[in-house]
Every structure is written in C-alpha cells, then in structure tokens.
Simulated assay, not measured.
Amino acid sequence: MRDKNYKGQYFRITVPQIFMVVGITAAVAGTLLFLWYAIPVLLLVFAGILLAIFLQGLSGWIARHTFLSYGWSLTFVVLDLATIFLVSLSLIAPEVADQAYHLSQQLPEALQRLKQYFAQYTWGQELLALIGKDLMPSREFMLTQASNIFSSTLDVLFSFIIILFIGLYGAAQPRLYVDGIIRLIPIRKRQRARMVLHQVGQTLLWWLFGRMISMTVVGMLTVPGLWLLGIPNILTLGLLAGLLTFIPYVGPVLSVVPAALLALLQSPIQVINVLLLYLFLQSFEGYLLTPLVQKRTVAMPPILTISVQVLFGTLLGFFGLMLATPLVAALMVLIRMLYVEDILGNSGKNKL
C-alpha cells in the first residue's frame, strides 16, 4: 500500500504495522471500557482509602502525644468512634426516625402548595408546564421512590462493609501498601514518589478534618436556628444539613430544600427566614472555617470543584458526587508536584 504525503514522498505501510495499530487501538479501547465499568469499584476503594487516612491521622496523633503505640492508638480510636456512634444512635435515632417520617408526610403537601402558588401567575403556569409533572411528585410517586430506596439497602450495606474493611486494613498497615506502590516506581524516582504520596495523604487528611469540623458546626447551629424560627423536625433537618456539608457548594443547596418547603407550609416570610439562616451558616462555614483548613491543603477553584461534582453526580450518582471534591484535591496535588514542579521546573512555593 502506498500513500503520498504533502511533499510528494512515498512511504510503505506494511501489514504487521496495520495489525500493530489495530492491536494498540483495541487495547486502549478495552482498557477504557474496563475502567468505565470498574469506576464504581474504584470509588469504593477510594472511599476506603479516605477512611484509612482519617483513622491513621487520628491514631498517629495519639501515638505521638501519648505513651500508646500506634497499634493500641488505632484500637482506641476505632473503639472510641464505634462507642460514640452507637451511643448517638441509641439516643437520637428514635427521634430522628419519627421526625423523618413526619417530614416525608409533610413534603408532598408543601410541594402541592408550591405548585398552587406558581399556578396563580402566568409565568408560573408556563414554568409548571415546562417542568412537567415529574419534578412535582405526588405522594404516590414519593412512596414509590422510598420503596426503591429501601430495596437498595442491601447494596448500601455491602458497600459500607467494603469501605470499612479497606479503611481498617489500610490504617492497620499503611506502610505495607505504600511500599507496595513505591516498588512499582523506578529506583531513582522512589524518593520523590514517596514525597508525593505523603503530600496527597496529608492533603486528604486535612480536607477530611475540615469537612468534619464544618459538618459538626453547621449541624449544631442549624438545630437551634430552626427552633427559633419555629420550623418542625429540627433534628432531622439539622442532621441532614450537617451530613450534606460534606459536599462543598452543592450540599448546602440540597440541604435547604426540605427546610424551605416546610417553612412554606407556614408562610412565605418563613421561607425567606430559613433561606437567610442557611445563607448565614454557609457563609460562616465558607469564609471562616474552610479558609483556616485550606492553609494546610490546596485552595480548590470553585468552578473546577462544581464542574467535577456535576460530572461525577451525573455519571455516577450521589456516591460520585460525594467523592468528587477529595478526588479533585488529590489530583491538584499530583498536578502541582509531578507536572508544575517536576516537568515545568517551578519552585512549588505557589500552590495551585
């Protein structure tokens, strides 16, 4: 086979070369297809690594500041966290479950009232026609969705067990897994690789600590704030606000929706009060708590973070949305150290 390039010169493409190109293309396509189907599993592994980093960080701090060894410190941390979880579950779980039930009963009524409010205006009628019935669900639709959620409880429990075991084993022998990764690197690059892994771990550790602090503060401040406004189901709404704070930017928007809908059952003024309360809490968290933690991590651009959250949420669901931000944090460290510093030769003093 002969082809002519722009200079008028000829070159020969042999049959082995054709097979080689086809083979490489098929291998790349197969690898990408495998990674696509393996993404849910990889996300579970990454979640387990986050748990391992969190447990290792707490255990290492205790081991450095007490007479306990790292192994006993890890045992203390695991038992302590398990005790706190079980005690909290026994104390507030019945109340939260009762409030969650009432919340599920009140939300359809709030959605119907919102629909009636929009229907009073021409622009509202056009908006309702544009949205359609699917986004204004009935009680039957919500019950159907609830049954679907309960049917997937087994999958959630299985995923939780996998994350728990990965986290425990990773925290118990962190050096074993780090050394295993380092052995895959050429000898002359191993010291740098160890530094990069350490920095990624530290970044994720401080990001997790920051999220935990933000979740606790927002959840604890939401409950009395809603109580002062006279909004019902404050424990459930406070717990929801605290948990969703784990997802920057998107989480606070999701947490305000049920509170605003319940406020709508009282009056439009209450909706404004609830929105102002959540705006104050998220401003406090975003402008005071987060900057203090970001001194020890990387400053992630909001546009990049939100874009990755939307992408992961669309492709991988809520679980992908939860893990999008720590993935961005780890990726930015890798870009800064491996590309900006090592390839471009920048000093690394200016963080991404």
Rank of each mutant, 00 (worst) to 15 (best):
K4F: 14
Y6T: 15
F11I: 07
F11S: 14
T14Q: 02
F19Y: 10
F19N: 05
V21Q: 02
V22S: 04
G23A: 14
I24H: 02
A26Q: 03
L32S: 11
F34S: 05
Y37C: 14
I39Q: 08
F46M: 10
A52F: 03
I53Y: 02
G57M: 06
I62M: 03
A63F: 08
S69L: 01
Y70D: 15
G71A: 13
W72T: 14
L74F: 05
F76A: 15
V77Y: 01
D80R: 06
L81N: 11
T83G: 12
S88H: 00
S90F: 15
L91S: 11
P94R: 06
E95W: 10
V96Y: 08
V96Q: 05
A97T: 14
Y101G: 12
H102R: 07
L103M: 02
Q105M: 14
L107W: 00
P108D: 03
A110W: 01
A110C: 10
L114Q: 01
Q116W: 01
Q120G: 02
Y121F: 01
E126G: 03
A129C: 00
L130M: 11
L135Q: 06
F141Y: 02
T144Y: 05
T144W: 03
Q145L: 00
A146C: 03
N148F: 12
I149Y: 03
L154F: 10
D155W: 02
F160A: 15
F160Q: 07
F165E: 07
F165W: 11
G167V: 09
Y169F: 15
Y169D: 12
A171E: 06
V178P: 02
I182F: 01
R183F: 11
I187D: 13
R188M: 00
K189C: 09
Q191T: 13
R192K: 11
A193K: 11
M195Q: 12
V200Y: 05
G201A: 09
W206E: 10
M212E: 12
M212G: 12
I213H: 09
M215W: 01
V217A: 09
G219P: 14
T222V: 12
W227H: 12
W227E: 14
W227S: 13
L229V: 11
G230D: 08
L239V: 15
A241Y: 04
F246H: 00
P248C: 04
Y249P: 10
G251H: 10
V253Y: 01
L254N: 11
V256A: 13
A260S: 04
L262W: 13
I272D: 00
N273H: 14
V274A: 12
V274R: 03
L275E: 06
L276R: 07
L276K: 03
F280H: 02
L281S: 02
S283L: 13
T290D: 04
T290A: 12
Q294L: 03
K295Q: 15
V298F: 09
V298H: 09
P301T: 01
P302E: 06
Q309M: 15
G313L: 03
L316P: 07
F318C: 01
F319E: 08
L321K: 00
T325Q: 09
L331W: 05
M332Q: 12
L338K: 07
V340Y: 06
I343E: 03
L344K: 05
N346T: 14
G348S: 11
K349C: 13
K351Y: 07
